[in-house]
C-alpha cells in the first residue's frame, strides 16, 4: 500500500458527501497509474534533440551568469 493510501477513514461518512466526488477522483483511483505511451522513433529523437539543445543553452546562460558574478567588483 502506498503512503498515499494509509490512514484509511474508518468512520461512516454521510452518503451524499461521498457522492460529491466522481469515482475516478478518489485517492485510491488517482493512485492507479495511467498506461505508458509508446513513443515512435521520430518523437523520441525530437525529445532528445530538444533536451540536448536546452542543456547547451542552459550551460551558456549559467556560464555567463557565473562569469558575471566573478567579474563584478564588490
Amino acid at each position: 500500500m502506498q503512503d498515499h493510501q494509509q490512514h484509511i477513514y474508518l468512520g461512516e461518512p454521510e452518503e451524499d458527501l461521498i457522492e460529491s466526488l466522481e469515482p475516478d477522483q478518489l485517492v485510491i483511483e488517482m493512485d492507479k497509474p495511467v498506461s505508458r505511451r509508446r513513443l515512435n522513433g521520430y518523437t523520441t529523437a525530437g525529445l532528445w534533440a530538444l533536451r540536448v539543445f536546452l542543456l547547451t543553452i542552459t550551460g551558456m546562460v549559467i556560464y555567463a551568469f557565473v562569469a558575471g558574478v566573478i567579474n563584478t567588483p564588490r
Partner: peptide
C-alpha cells in the same frame, strides 16, 4: 477505501 483526503475534498 476512503481516505481523509477524499472526505475533505468531497
Amino acid at each position: 477505501l476512503l481516505t481523509p483526503e477524499d472526505l475533505t475534498r468531497s
